[in-house]
């Protein structure tokens, strides 16, 4: 298992570097926005990475409730931590891009707000986890909240359709009327975006979650050894 994890990690690192090459080398400089547009190749893929990780949390939660096997809870918590990191990366890259394009780091746009709320929901998940001492109850409640929390992810995905007065550009489908900073999706843009999307929405979250699950297993093992030492 460890060996395949190492191989996967190697593949992920090489893929991310390749993706960065596509963003900074292969893709042409945007005529209107300049080099700052290149951040988009990380910005959007990192959101979908978070989406994958949070989906992992839902799967882990549902399967834990059904089977009560601890490994599913490890998957759920790994999904939350990795997804939270990717969601924060998504927010940070968005802010860096918005500074020159929208002339502000942050604006109370519906999509920005819902993305921030999404991140806070998963912080609340971690708080809830820490607030419960009984291990079984902690896993149970965390599974339930992990399932409920996915609604904020879905909201962030759909918000442009519900609240159309946003200035955030849409990449899939037509952009909202007031969108600022839209750029043309030429074939070259698509060629640089698609591999990055694939890498960030599969390889990156899966590798990180695998490491996190491994960490969880190790710490449980240490716990068990400690108990044995105390008892002997």
């Amino acid at each position: 298992m460890t060996k395949s994890l190492h191989i996967l990690t190697g593949i992920t690192i090489i893929s991310v570097l390749f993706g960065l090459y596509l963003a900074f080398g292969y893709a042409r400089t945007d005529l209107e926005q300049g080099d700052i547009q290149r951040i988009f190749y990380i910005h959007m893929p990192s959101f979908f990475g978070a989406f994958t990780a949070f989906t992992g949390t839902v799967i882990g939660g549902v399967m834990y409730l059904r089977t009560r096997h601890v490994k599913w809870d490890s998957l759920a918590v790994a999904g939350v931590e990795v997804g939270l990191m990717l969601a924060l990366l998504n927010l940070a890259t968005g802010a860096i891009w918005a500074r020159p394009i929208w002339n502000t780091w942050w604006t109370w746009d519906p999509r920005l707000t819902s993305a921030a709320v999404m991140a806070l929901t998963y912080l609340a998940y971690l708080m809830l986890r820490n607030g419960i001492e009984n291990a079984d109850k902690r896993r149970l409640f965390a599974s339930v909240y992990g399932i409920v929390a996915i609604t904020t992810v879905i909201l962030t995905l759909m918000i442009i359709r519900i609240v159309p007065d946003t200035i955030h550009p849409a990449v899939i489908g037509p952009s909202p009327q007031n969108a600022e900073g839209v750029f043309e999706a030429t074939p070259r843009v698509a060629a640089a975006l698609l591999p990055n999307l694939l890498i960030w929405s599969t390889l990156v979250p899966i590798t990180l979650m695998w490491w996190r699950i491994r960490l969880e297993n190790k710490s449980e093992h240490v716990q068990k050894l400690r108990m044995e030492l105390i008892n002997s």
Partner: peptide, 30 residues
Amino acid sequence: LLATMTVQTRSRETLLPIAMLPVVLPVILT
């Protein structure tokens, strides 16, 4: 659902707003 969980935790009353506010955002918005 959320209150049934949070009353069983250590921090009790303080945790419900934290857990509930982000989740009810779709309701509030609409």
